[in-house]
Simulated scan of single mutants.
Amino acid sequence: MIRIRRTSRRALVLGPSTAWGAMAVTYKLAWPTEQQAGLGVRIGTSALFFAVGTGLILHVRWVLLRELRQARRVARAAQSVLLRPPPPRVDGLSTAAVQLSADRGACVGGDLYDVVATEHGVRAVMGDVRGHGLGALGAVAALLGSFREAVHDEPDLGRVLRRMDRAFARHLRERADGEHPCGAAPSDPVTEEFVTVLLLEIRPDGGIFALNCGHPWPYRTAATVESLTRADPLPPLGPFPLPADLPALSCGPLLPGQSLVLYTDGAEDARDGRGRFFDLRQALGRTAGDRPRVMLHTVLKALKRHTGGRPTDDVALLILQNDRPEPPCTPSGARDADVGDSAARAREAATHPQPTPHT
């Protein structure tokens, strides 16, 4: 299979040059006006014509390849700024993340993620902009820029989401004004853009609080794999305004040793050649107890094997594992015994008061 692909690529590269040379030789040998010259002259001019045409085509190909390499370098630079890899540890949480673009050769897609340690706790975002490739880069930049600033300023997770919503709306207005100076038409694709966003806050005690706008809920993994919650998410950002009240949803604790796996729908919507969806939950079940990077490697390997190495949608994965030590606690039996002894002493003192000493 690999040899067939390489042969096809070589044919596509050498095909135009060969065709140009073949036409040049045919012209020089068969054209009536060229029959007046001798055979040696015609062969010589044909070879010269073939060499010049082939050189021109190869030069154009070299220029295009150079521009493609430059574009990829720019895309990699943009990725390092926008989707910068999270540090290995963030305030006691081990992290690992990856993003795969559906556009072949592209480095940046429509998915976004980040993890930031703040005085309010560790805050994470996972989002999916409609579309993929460089066309979604502006929306990703607007959303991540707003998130990275708001998580430090806003103690309330709902206010972080509102600032991201305003940044996305402002990006759409500016894009519409640039494409249609007189106003975007109602059927214009700009007016139909949306983004799904998941915001998480992991507090020092391990408590998880979340706001979800149309995004898949993450998985919480340990010995088993379960969805973080089954609550209905809010609508995606863009088409509908946010509700007036945005209380963060409490999703229980992230205990030491447990992991949260955030992902975009491209992971679960990936299909194989028979149209079967990728079972992300089953793949995570085979990584129980592993470190985040090992988990990520195992899941990516299974995903690429399922899709044949060519996913049809952008895929992003972010894993957060709680490595914080367990807080010291008194056993429940001893605590109950202490409470019982204190209550008994209080009843004894009330029933038999001690005499007051006389001086």
Rank of each mutant, 00 (worst) to 15 (best):
G145A: 09
P247N: 02
G15W: 07
T33L: 10
C182D: 04
T224L: 12
T7N: 14
H132A: 07
P32H: 15
P357F: 02
A210D: 04
D269Q: 15
D272R: 00
A47G: 08
V140K: 03
G158P: 07
G21I: 01
L284Q: 01
L198I: 02
D153W: 05
D290F: 05
L320K: 05
P241W: 08
G138R: 10
S250P: 15
E193L: 13
R5W: 13
R73V: 04
D279P: 09
I208G: 03
V190R: 03
F278M: 11
G275L: 15
A169M: 08
F240Q: 06
S101M: 11
P239M: 06
M295Q: 06
G257C: 05
C329P: 00
Q282G: 15
Q99C: 15
L82R: 10
G109T: 03
L254A: 11
R170I: 00
S332A: 15
A51M: 14
T224N: 10
P204G: 02
G206I: 08
A176Q: 01
A244M: 12
V299T: 01
V225P: 00
A11T: 01
A344Q: 12
H180Y: 13
G252L: 10
M23N: 09
R293L: 09
V315E: 00
L237S: 01
E119W: 08
T359Q: 13
A167P: 15
C251V: 02
V60A: 06
G92E: 02
T298L: 13
V125N: 07
P311V: 07
P155Q: 11
P236F: 07
D153P: 02
L200D: 01
F50K: 03
L198T: 00
T95I: 08
T54F: 11
L137D: 09
L296D: 01
R5A: 10
G15L: 03
A78V: 08
R173V: 08
G145E: 02
A102C: 03
A19P: 06
D265A: 13
L303I: 04
L137P: 03
R9N: 06
Q282P: 07
R66H: 05
A96E: 08
T7C: 07
L157T: 02
A167E: 05
R274K: 11
